[in-house]
Amino acid sequence: MNSPLESAVLFHLGPIPITQAVVTTWAIMVVLVLAAFLLTRRLDLRPSRRQAALELVVATLDTQIVATSEADPAPYRGFIGTLFLYTLVANWSSLLPGIDPPTAQLETDAALAALVFLSVIWFGVRSGGVGGYLRSFAAPNPVMIPLNMLESVTRVFSMFVRLFGNVMSGVFVIGIVASLAGLLVPIPLMALDLLTGLVQAYIFAVLAMVFITATVEDGKARTADADPTNLSEQKDI
């Protein structure tokens, strides 16, 4: 069994080493895109069971986004939903024999965390402008600027470490147990790994939404504070 801390390079594309995690991710991408394309070919006003299930997924995701951000879910739906789906499928790919989940590799989780970090900046700037995003670091007061800047990195780092630790440990434990106790004993652990993968995907997506919302809300609040025309409205509130 290879160390989960090392990436197994399958081949090179020029100078670029292609690891198993990358190939597995490509496979997951193909499966997800093909499945989405096939499932969404005929969407009608009178939904079939298939369409109703798809709409249930989207509606549930929108509900979660609205519950977290109290905003229109449309701008965040694609990123947060894809983040959740990819993480979930990647976590559950460990159930296939001979497949190591991409999320059990440092690079994949780091890439996801980096995307969350960048998405926070992107949505923060898009909502309140560059000034609004930068002012969000001064919430609740300028004294917190160093801590907020440090937090913006550490919280993403904690996400990355949490996801990596949970998935990698599950794979590692199952591998050890399977090497020691044969075929049937790991089954309960694999079932637990399913639950862990679902929970970690959910936590990762929800935390990403929380971070984005916090930045957007802080940027909006600071922008509103700086706008004297909003004083009367704030008094009313």
């Binding site: 990436s7 969404t40 798809l54 739906r77 694609g78 983040l83 890439a111």
Partner: peptide
């Protein structure tokens, strides 16, 4: 690998937005 995975996920975000999230929404 980190960069490739980030690009992969971004591409997946774009593709799923076009073929799944947006049509269903």
């Amino acid at each position: 690998t980190l960069g490739l995975q980030a690009v992969n996920v971004l591409i997946l975000v774009w593709l799923l937005s076009r073929v799944f999230w947006r049509p269903v929404a």
